[in-house]
Nucleic acid binder design. Structure first.
Lengths: 349, 349
DNA sequence: CCGTATGTAGAAAGCGCTTGCTGCAACGCT
DNA sequence: AGCGTTGCAGCAAGCGCTTTCTACATACGG
């Protein structure tokens, strides 16, 4: 059978208690004893029984990271940063923490399920990333679940997600509204007056915030928005392609298209090109997020850079208690406007 | 304190054993009793203690998925497919399986560490994705570790990774050699005779296999390879950009550049463009993998499509024992040549 | 030289669950 | 009617750790 603590203890001629203490390093053990134990551990190739340890200690080394779509670099970059900060030494029992990412696929049910699963595993912390779903019932369910986790001592931090008051969770929100506004103001500054907007799925907070920023910019410059100028889609390229065609059909005189994110913007570029329009001479395009591929687009994409890596790292540190939580448990992270080749002055009409 | 099985039992007026059996559903329980138990579970909002359960049952609901780089869609797509197949109902204790992805960042040490961590958690299965590192010591260490896992009853499957004989792991390998050969033959068929090759990191099996395929194609057509035509880099765009510049410096007369993967190919396109060369009129470019963004490149990328999603799904099913392992525990998955705009007949020199 | 503080190790009681075995009705068979 | 089945439920023994409490040296101050 597998080697147990007792086997190690026998071999090192000490009690199981001592072995446990050496491994956990939270109790004085004489250097000579420690050495003997470590030697036995090594010789027997002992691997701690995680469940047993977690049961006895009432907490585990597991940390969960929830993402909407693991195939989307937006989440991949964030998850990578979080995991880098969380994983590694520092766990219990002389071990590493096990930072794991869970892919919800954007489904509210799976989101909840994963939370339950992590609760069941007695996870040490949980980081939730990405925009939330604006459904009252689901949000309420999430909030109670989160509350339960924090009550049980699991640290919960939200990264790029709106705060959840009264749940004990710490939030690092992206200022999507501000970024959206700045982006559209840039376009307006170039002279655009007829701007199409490809929004994300209606039920996501991110979608609403970016759109609100866009509208705030229009309003600030006295531009009256034509209802035909906004189309809702998904956060992917395909959707951007189709939405752009629809936009063009509704109003061929648009001089700029603002997309919900970079993937959508790429789709928009393709659609424009396929429609025989040049970027930015005929139509300017703008994205959001500044994912790595955005700079490779031809022309490269004007967008709002979100500090995904930095925010993720910070969220990770907070989850580990290595960095203080922001005052009030809420911090807003700003994006940075990246002006590149896909936006230019509008054609004279 | 938290609700335990005993609390539920008390409330339902049955023994803890019965509650456990209802939850696990692996033992006959009278319908009326079951109902009473379920009601109590619901009323008390009971969440199973995972560690306790895993300890007693000597196995857990955890399934690990190891990836080299979570921010890379190549792995994201595969991980997503695997997770979709593995997660969800079917776990023990009326529960879901917890499919988690672990980001090794391509580091051999972290790869090993994660395996230990998963072993410690008594994971039910582990899926390893991506090419392996060609370092004898590391491979030996990995093999013993894997052997230990399979011996302990953890199913291990390799997805897009070379087989590890004698370890008990099941392998679903990508035919990188065949794909690489087919790709280069396509270029040769168009008339190219001077082909640059941007390889991945030297120590990865994937790199070697793709390069071998490329060389096999050259050899098959009697083209003698100039050593200046091959450059090694990383699997990212940046690397592709720099490598292409280097290639151009070494031999400006190249008419085609074959890249280690699509990201590298994108970088190559950018470098060529920045050097005033047209694609494919002046230089043809080819990638590998066919990630979603490849079709958006301008011109769209000629590449080899790897069935990432299908392979991942299959790996997931095998890991769950829901699909039979291939004969001999090894299967090779072929890629499909996608001829698109980035490859054309060479300019007349 | 004795009482007390100090440093280190062991004994043992769980942590909350699973499961082999036992117990007991109710049932059907001869 | 007697007895082996069958169907459900409970008992209790762990699973392999952690941790409190106890025990024993040794060191130290008065």
């Amino acid at each position: 059978m597998t080697v147990t603590l007792a086997d190690v203890a026998a071999r090192a001629q000490v009690s199981p208690a001592t072995v446990s203490r050496v491994l956990n390093g939270n109790y004085p053990v004489a250097a000579s004893t420690r050495e003997r134990v470590l030697k036995a551990v090594d010789e027997l190739d002992y691997v701690l029984n995680g469940p047993a340890s977690a049961l006895a200690a009432a907490t585990s080394d597991l940390v969960g990271i929830l993402v909407n779509d693991i195939a989307d670099p937006f989440f991949g970059i964030m998850a990578s940063a979080i995991q880098a900060e969380i994983g590694g030494p520092g766990g219990r029992a002389g071990g590493e923490r096990l930072a794991v990412v869970c892919n919800t696929g954007g489904s509210p049910e799976r989101e909840l399920t994963y939370l339950t699963l992590l609760q069941r595993q007695r996870a040490a912390a949980v980081v939730l990333t990405g925009g939330a779903i604006e459904d009252a019932a689901h949000q309420a369910a999430m909030d109670t679940k989160v509350r339960k986790l924090t009550d049980a001592g699991t640290r919960v931090v939200l990264c790029g997600r709106p705060p959840a008051p009264e749940t004990g969770a710490i939030a690092l929100t992206f200022d999507n509204r501000g970024g959206g506004q700045e982006l559209t103001e840039h376009l307006i500054g170039l002279g655009h007056r007829r701007l199409g907007y490809i929004a994300g799925p209606e039920e996501r907070t991110t979608t609403r915030h970016r759109l609100e920023g866009h509208r705030a910019a229009l309003a600030a410059h006295g531009i009256e928005e034509d209802p035909r100028w906004t189309v809702h889609g998904r956060y992917d390229r395909r959707s951007g392609y189709e939405a752009t065609l629809e936009l063009l059909r509704r109003d061929p005189s648009l001089t700029a298209v603002v997309a919900a994110n970079d993937s959508v913007a790429l789709g928009a570029c393709a659609a424009l090109r396929d429609s025989g329009l040049r970027i930015p001479e005929d139509v300017s395009v703008a994205g959001f997020d500044d994912l790595p591929f955005s700079i490779d687009a031809v022309p490269s994409l004007t967008t709002v850079r979100l500090p995904l890596g930095e925010a993720g790292a910070r969220a990770g540190r907070i989850a580990m208690g290595r960095e203080e939580a922001p005052p009030g448990g809420i911090a807003s992270v700003r994006g940075e406007l990246m002006v590149r080749g896909s936006s230019g002055v509008p054609r004279v009409s």
